[in-house]
């Protein structure tokens, strides 16, 4: 604006001698146009961080369950075992040899592997402890069968033959267990996904309430912005920018905490791996590592939370502005 110089306020001339032109690189501080009370802002960041943490952990647990169930399925789906129980009236080695012979005769059984006694004793170590003389105990022996196809139909007959010929032996069908475990795993996965969804809804509500609070608190600023020619769109964007920033901060903090927690659990479980407890856990959940995709899921959850913060604050502001006019 080119204004004539003579209109300069004399007062300013008197009180503050003018120092030459001075234009800092950017005069505008990085201030949002709409103030968001910093205490409320911090509280919102903490709430979002906690929610993100919970959502990320649930997502991680769901992923872990999915992985574990995949492992069981792959490892066990086409396997069966024959269990030969010790009987003082029978010779267990002879029973073993007879059962192996019968199994080999079944067309759908591709491979028969009698488990040596040392190996089956080892399986019990986690539960009974090492150093126990297992020769003294009547421990059942195992024969592992690998099936050539999952849809074998001669197994029922084989089971009956086995019971008749070797009364101390029984055929265990793992596939039933696999089905039960998969059902359990699916339940865990569904529960995890449900928790994630609930947490996202909670995060959205928290942001909506915080936005309403901020709007009510800056009603005056909003009115001034309208008077100086700001559109609703512009004002909504200002709020949204602010809340996306808060959402990103909370999401990053919560996601980071979740990554640290998961890494810590992984570290602890590998530190335990020499102990029997770890073997039991591993048997159930597989290795306690969620790997790349796990961390990606955590980051995704944090990003979705930030996006929800932006979207919800925008919708809330637009709604409020419409109600105001």
């Amino acid at each position: 604006m080119s204004m004539p110089d003579h209109l300069d306020m004399e007062e300013a001339e008197e009180e503050r001698p003018r120092s030459g032109p001075r234009l800092p690189a950017s005069l505008r501080r990085d201030q949002p146009l709409v103030p968001v009370d910093s205490v409320a802002g911090r509280a919102l960041v903490v709430v979002i961080a906690i929610l993100t943490f919970l959502a990320a952990l649930s997502a991680g647990a769901a992923l872990l369950a999915a992985r574990a169930s995949e492992q069981w399925r792959g490892a066990v789906a086409n396997e069966m075992t024959i269990q030969v129980r010790p009987d003082p009236r029978r010779n267990i080695e002879q029973d073993m040899a007879r059962a192996v012979e019968l199994a080999r005769a079944v067309p759908s059984v591709a491979e028969v592997r009698p488990m040596p006694k040392t190996e089956s004793d080892k399986l019990l170590e986690p539960w009974l402890g090492a150093g126990l003389d297992l020769v003294e105990l009547p421990i059942p022996r195992l024969i592992v069968l690998r099936l050539s196809s999952v849809a074998a139909n001669d197994l029922v007959a084989f089971s009956q033959t086995l019971r008749r010929e070797v009364p101390s032996a029984t055929l265990d069908d793992h596939r039933l267990w696999v089905r039960r475990l998969s059902t359990m795993a699916s339940t865990i996965i569904l529960a995890g996904v449900a928790v994630v969804l609930l947490v996202l809804v909670a995060a959205g509500l928290a942001v909506a309430f915080a936005t309403r609070g901020a709007m009510a608190g800056s009603r005056d600023s909003v009115e001034v912005l309208h008077f100086v020619g700001a559109t609703d769109e512009f004002i909504a964007r200002e709020f949204q920018t602010r809340f996306v920033a808060l959402g990103l901060r909370g999401g990053a903090a919560g996601g980071l905490a979740a990554i640290i927690a998961i890494a810590l659990l992984g570290f602890l479980s590998s530190a335990w791996s020499a102990t029997p407890e770890a073997d039991q856990l591993q048997a159930l959940f597989g290795a306690f590592e969620i790997g790349w995709s796990g961390y990606a899921v955590v980051i995704l959850v944090a990003a979705v939370v930030a996006a929800i913060a932006g979207l919800v604050s925008r919708l809330t502001v637009r709604h409020y502005l419409r109600a105001m006019s």
Partner: peptide
């Protein structure tokens, strides 16, 4: 503010605002 809400770049109006501020004696 009235310029900022029109979506103008800050650099495009900085000098103008500073000049007006000096003109009303608020340069310092």
């Amino acid at each position: 503010l009235p310029l900022r809400v029109t979506g103008k770049e800050e650099t495009s109006y900085r000098a103008e605002v500073v000049e007006l501020l000096r003109w009303v004696g608020l340069g310092e």
